[in-house]
Amino acid sequence: MAATMSDAGTRRDFLYVASGAVGAVGLTAAAWPFVDQMNPSTAALALASTEVELGAVQPGQQVIVKWRGHPLFVRRRTPAEIEAAKAVDVASLPDPLANNNGLPESAPATDANRATKPEWLILIGVCTHLGCTPTVSTPQMPEGDYGGWLCHCHGSMYDTAGRIRKGPAPRNLEVPPYTFLSDTRVKVG
């Protein structure tokens, strides 16, 4: 059977490699559904938006609403808090990027890029370290050294623009996409 013998191997070699390759591809294809079933279902993926009524929120006050399973911080900042946030040199920050979903990724973490309307700071209340909800700081009950938030889990401190200043968190608190429907109503998501 000289016709089946060559440098490329025998017919049996070919069948061996071919069936092995098809088997490996088949196994991988069969494994994928078992991996992907762990990902969020279509129900979870359906993007939800929420509207927040701002009329009752006083300066210096923060309200927390639930958005996509996470707490959402809506903080009405006092003029002093806005000034404190503006006075910070962006280059000196641990995370110099705005981390604002409504802006390009490279936008710097200036106060204007963190809060489109300076009075209203809207953030996802999830510490960028390991996901705890940071505690808000007020002049009466200070939390952390920078007047913003302190995460009690591992000690990350955020300033009055929600930017990380000290502690293990790597990034500024995330700013969700939002639009003001009126002066007292904002739509998040």
Binding site: M38, N39, P40, S41, A44, R68, G69, H70, G131
Partner: peptide
């Protein structure tokens, strides 16, 4: 993390698995 949760936060899907 999202794959582990089965959602965008720890929730019902996470508890079940």
């Amino acid at each position: 993390a999202t794959w582990l949760w089965g959602d965008f936060a720890v929730g019902d899907a996470t508890l079940n698995r």
